[in-house]
């Protein structure tokens, strides 16, 4: 059980929450995640990255986008409410050292998990170049936070409504062409964006680390639902990851697996939304 200490809406579909979780706050490192359930008997177990932690307050921060039923239910909870199931920190921490120049590329909600990693890389003495992107201006999150830790900061939107009109892969390519080329790229965002970032850096042979957001159930290595092909091996994202070498990940298979339940989940979400609208109408 974990109390919601603070809640804030960051953009139309994106929320930030601080949750009371002293043990997790103490043990976690950048790159790790938690699993939570909004309802213990029938709720789904959903993984969310730990965006930040405060050991004094004994809290962790999550930033999530509303995409389906469980994230909708979560977004409807308020400060003071309890989350019945919260477990973590899960996954392996990001390996942090002074690599030299690191490009941190964040797409959409992916900026949330990227932030603590960029911060840790900066603290370790790296030259941090940050590229953040979204479809449109309203979906940009954590701009100030990312800017303040970046040595170079590039913002782009697909539609040009804010910053540069470009996909994140364009500035990424330009940076790879510099001499010297960057030592490493970290890309976090929608699978398709991570796939194309990896394709962009491949010809330049710049090591590209991605953070995979597969479907999960337990998050402890027990079910194999989170498995992905990495090179010739099968890896479990929850215990072997979530970070992998983007040049080795089979993104097409990963995306197909991510969509395993797409129709059912969409139906469940619509069903839930309809019931809610009806309930609200009934109140009127």
């Amino acid at each position: 059980m974990s109390k919601i200490l603070f809640k804030k809406q960051l953009s139309k579909d994106v929320f930030l929450m601080r949750l009371h979780a002293p043990l997790i706050a103490e043990e976690r490192s950048a790159g790790q995640f938690i699993i939570l359930q909004v309802n213990e008997d029938y709720g789904e177990r959903i993984p969310l990255t730990i965006a930040d932690a405060d050991t004094k307050e004994g809290s962790i921060t999550i930033i999530f986008q509303v995409v389906g039923k469980s994230t909708t239910l979560l977004s409807e909870l308020n400060e003071g409410d309890d989350i019945p199931t919260l477990v973590g920190p899960l996954g392996r921490p990001t390996h942090i050292e002074n690599f030299g120049t690191v490009v941190c590329v964040g797409g959409g909600i992916g900026v949330a998990p990227l932030h603590p990693i960029a911060q840790a890389l900066k603290n370790a003495g790296n030259h941090v170049i940050t590229i953040i992107g979204a479809r449109t201006k309203d979906l940009i999150i954590l701009e100030e936070e990312m800017k303040s830790i970046a040595d170079e900061f590039i913002l782009c939107t697909d539609d040009g409504s804010y910053g540069r009109k470009a996909l994140v892969t364009q500035p990424l390519k330009e940076i790879c062409e510099r001499n010297p080329k960057p030592n490493m790229v970290i890309a976090i965002g929608p699978p398709i964006m991570m796939k194309f970032c990896s394709e962009t850096t491949r010809p330049y042979e710049v090591f590209t680390q991605v953070s995979l957001n597969t479907i999960m159930v337990d998050g402890t290595g027990m079910c194999g639902g989170c498995r992905v092909n990495v090179g010739k091996e099968i890896k479990f994202v929850c215990v072997d990851g979530p970070e992998f070498d983007g040049h080795k990940v089979d993104f097409d298979n990963m995306m197909a697996r991510l969509n395993s339940y797409k129709e059912i989940e969409r139906a469940a979400h619509n069903c839930y939304l309809e019931a809610e609208i009806k309930a609200k109408e009934a109140l009127r």
């Binding site: 402890t220 290595g221 079910c223 194999g224 639902g225 395993s260």
Partner: peptide, 25 residues
């Protein structure tokens, strides 16, 4: 609790589950 797979082609296709995952769900 670590499910074994066969190591055969196609084991990561959509619709292939470990018994653990299927039964846990």
């Amino acid at each position: 609790g670590l499910p074994l797979f066969m190591g055969i082609e196609g084991e990561n296709l959509v619709g292939v589950f470990s018994a653990n995952e299927y039964l846990t769900r």
